[in-house]
Amino acid sequence: MTSHASGDHAILAGATEDPVEARRNMLLGVKLGILSEVMLFGALFVAYFVVRADSPSWPPTGLERPELLLPGLNTILLVSSSVTMQLGVASVMRNDRRRLLRWMGATLLLGTIFVGIQGYEFATNGFGLKDGVFGSTFYTLTGFHGAHVLVGLIFIAIVANRARRGLISAERHTAVEAASYYWHFVDGVWLFLFTTLYVL
């Protein structure tokens, strides 16, 4: 029992033995990590806006932006996956493991479709990474974001697996919450990406 109680938390947050403290430490840590990620994407966005402002036209002549259909669909997918993730958190609070698993499964599914569509788009866009600053910024920004989605998916999968094994409960669900913070952040970045890269 005690080894159980410490297990989930001690691995995430270390020095303190008290699970409540450990949970709060962990969540603060995740928030700080997200802050630093915000700055990372901030720098990439600044680069995007600067080269875009430098450029006489956008997109530069000869290149075209991707159609809005698929990215629009992707936006819907990712936003709904944030919702399903949050529903998962709500379920675990109620100690409803079955619902938790179901919602996390839905999130995984939505995220995976997102990545698939993104990959399809990358393969069929009429421009590449080497096509001047347009291609550079487009693929770097979406690529960085895509990598974050992948990391998020892996993390959610790990947490879901732990839940399946009964290692997650209403008292010990820090990892679910941490995953949800991260996932909402990734979702938020996409909204920015979508508006700036595709729409504006």
């Binding site: 630093s36 990620e37 700055m39 990372l40 901030g42 720098a43 990439l44 680069a47 080269v51 990474l129 080497k130 001047g132 600053v133 291609g135 550079s136 910024t137 693929y139 770097t140």
Partner: peptide, 22 residues
């Protein structure tokens, strides 16, 4: 601040390695 320089250096590395043109 650190992630900003990490982004800058990564873009520079991409310019060198992947043919981007930041």
């Amino acid at each position: 601040a650190t992630s900003v320089v990490a982004a800058a250096f990564t873009m520079l590395l991409f310019d060198r390695l992947l043919g981007t043109s930041f």
